[in-house]
Design a protein around this nucleic acid. Structure first.
Lengths: 131, 131
DNA sequence: GTAGAAGTTGACATCAATGTCAGGTTCAAG
DNA sequence: CTTGAACCTGACATTGATGTCAACTTCTAC
């Protein structure tokens, strides 16, 4: 598929897809005229990249990590080196702390929202949030 | 307490504390010479601010949200307006998605780490992570 | 072959919290 | 009073993925 379709299907801008390529995160075939063509599997890959970015990893880490992830269909292409394992463990712990923080923040928001709702509401969404 | 102590105790840089003040997130008394003095409660407040920043809220949202949170000792000073509740609900849902993403990323990292560990390890931490 | 949609590269902008530095002032202990 | 630590303001830098625009080329449907 071409870049426009990949962007649409993955929910990531064309700009970012080209950027991913410069960072070595995403491969593409080129037509004789220079247009990019992607395999079907690119959709999943892009989504995975996005998810890792959202978790606070930078391009370099993602580039090292991607070959060690198993694809939908099989085994990983590489096994993480001890050095990489160390880095990833650090990231894992950071993500763990992030999750803890986010849960706390979510609870705070829920409380503020529910406090405002108290007094009178029939909104099912907020009722559902009540403890 | 003075800014240095607050920075140390809250784990936030002096630079950031001053920034929080310009954003209306943090109040301080001033000595005749212009030095900031903070109440004990500032420590908690700063930590709360940091947590909300980590959850992706910006200064403006945090400024609106803070008066609606209840302090350690009591009731909130304000009740969120319907408009604010809408905004906060949007944030809450975003945070929810963030948590989902982070859990996924954490699992991915765990899998890569464990795959690398397979073959031979006696590291209790990674053994503990095994499913 | 032609028109218009879609693609290309390169450059520059952005966002927002935080780091850093300079030059000056205040505080507190001796 | 002195001295050094701590604090003040203001300015500029950083970070890194992404937005945006310009000028040009390629692709595709007719």
């Amino acid at each position: 598929m071409r870049i426009g379709e990949l962007a649409r299907r993955s929910g990531v801008s064309e700009r970012s897809l080209r950027y991913y390529e410069t960072q070595g995160l995403l491969q593409s075939e080129r037509t004789s005229g220079g247009h990019r063509h992607y395999a079907e599997s690119a959709v999943d890959r892009v989504i995975r990249i996005q998810t890792l970015y959202a978790a606070g990893l930078n391009s370099k880490k993602i580039a090292k990590l991607l070959p060690c992830m198993r694809d939908a269909d099989g085994r990983p292409n590489e096994i993480a080196t001890p050095t990489l394992v160390n880095e990833l463990t650090t990231e894992r712990d950071r993500i763990d702390r992030m999750i803890t923080d986010l849960l706390r923040s979510r609870d705070v928001l829920d409380e503020v929202i529910d406090t405002a709702a108290d007094g009178a509401t029939t909104d099912p969404a907020s009722l559902a949030r009540r403890r």
